[in-house]
Design a protein around this nucleic acid. Structure first.
Lengths: 241, 241
DNA sequence: CGGGAGCTTGATGGACCTCAATCCCTGTGG
DNA sequence: CCACAGGGATTGAGGTCCATCAAGCTCCCG
């Protein structure tokens, strides 16, 4: 990795202070990144290639397709995120993922990842910590879709995104660049595009949040959190092991 | 553990053949199980006690509560399942879980679990494999709620349950004992109780599946799979490490 | 200037929710 | 033995949220 910030290191550092050796190892792991064009599929559901990926630049999306052509987006991996860790243990990937924007990613072979866990268990734990955090967000997403209405759900989603991006320094307190269009949002939120549009208008009219020109601005943070029933995770504590 | 089948061992054995030593370790881990009465909460959301639990007997449910009193059930842990693994890394639990029926569980302290990963990494990997499988099901659940209608969703849920129970020998090919009532089902499927009732009636009338007297009987497996768009996972391959 | 991607708005209908009531079964206490 | 309560299942009526269909808009880019 040369010339740009390492988001994964930044994220992990909020959990555990890495040693020089661990930093080196992590750096080597990311030494030959691949460019992926917007819209390109990186892993196909059911694919057996046992690899994980680290995202350096750009946004991705992980999703499943249904027989009727519908698509449900599970999550939007952003810089610093690892994807496909599960496929290392499960032999096949349980869902697809593709690049939403032009991206830069590193591929980690399953064997390499297993070595990491053997040789640097503390670093391995840190990666699992990050993965667990993501899992928790999938759960929260499930709750949103199951029990929140369209407006609460949308608000919750944007707040969560804001928090995730802040963790890697890609969001200020109340705003962030966001390449998601309304079609993509709809597939993530389990809504129709048209309804997403109406909900965004309502949120804008109520002075809560705006999404314009690829930019999300949360104008009333308190109002948003109240609407969405949003609670922050606060696991900024250091690992004790 | 005395006198009853060990479901966790049974499940893990489909993934990797355990050594005598590993079996012994696993057995020790489960040496002093706790009885939990039906309805009793085992872990509360946000609770900091870093422990995981292995379920030996009974059904549990993991869920999140919303400010408005709503509840979304994430999954129903069954015998052989580990719950709360995430809370070991995240410091606090991201959701609650409670016993749906009178249950028997073993509590595993975080430190003990970490030792396990250090001392018997192969066994650790097997536990992570099982956990990954569960995560994949949460994702599938998310897809269901986001993109499948009530009937498809219900059918899919019952098929998944059937597969999970078969893995530990608690289901025959097409039927299983099921302590879930319609209220609980509704909270899992993101539906109202009343609608669950109507959907179950439709499924029954179409000769697809019946749920009566705590017993699920899948009468038309092909029809169910077609309706739900259900695909089996097939990771019966052995670990190669 | 044309075309396409994305956004916006209106009208209509359907899937599912809410409220309300009834019924069945089982357990419990008099 | 019967009355009664309570959990659970069932059914109906009416309303709401959101999907679908249809159309027009803006902006950007070739």
């Amino acid at each position: 990795m040369t010339g740009h910030e390492n988001y994964l290191v930044r994220k992990i550092s909020t959990f555990v202070d890495l040693s020089v050796h661990e930093l080196k190892y992590l750096s080597d792991l990311q030494s030959s990144p691949i460019r992926v064009k917007k819209g390109r599929e990186i892993v196909h559901e059911g694919q057996a290639g046992q690899s994980a990926y680290i995202i350096h630049e750009g946004w991705a999306c992980s999703f499943k397709l249904l027989p009727d052509g519908g698509r449900q987006i599970i999550t939007f991996p952003i810089p610093g995120d690892c994807v496909g860790l599960r496929s290392i243990l499960l032999r096949t990937s349980d869902h697809s993922f593709s690049a939403l924007t032009d991206s830069l990613v590193s591929r980690i072979q399953a064997a390499r990842m297993k070595d990491l866990f053997n040789e640097l268990p503390r670093l391995g734990a840190a990666i699992l910590w990050a993965a667990s955090r993501d899992e928790a967000m999938v759960v929260e997403h499930l709750v949103s879709i199951g029990r929140r209405n369209a407006m609460e759900r949308t608000a919750h989603f944007l707040l969560e995104l804001n928090d995730r991006l802040q963790l890697v320094g890609l969001a200020s307190n109340h705003s962030f660049a966001c390449p998601l269009n309304q079609y993509v949002l709809a597939d993530a939120l389990g809504l129709s595009t048209i309804h997403v549009n109406r909900v965004l208008r309502l949120l804008r009219e109520r002075g809560l949040v705006t999404l314009k020109n690829q930019m999300v601005v949360i104008q009333d943070m308190a109002g948003m959190k109240a609407l969405a029933g949003y609670v922050n995770r606060d696991d900024d504590e250091q690992i004790e092991q």
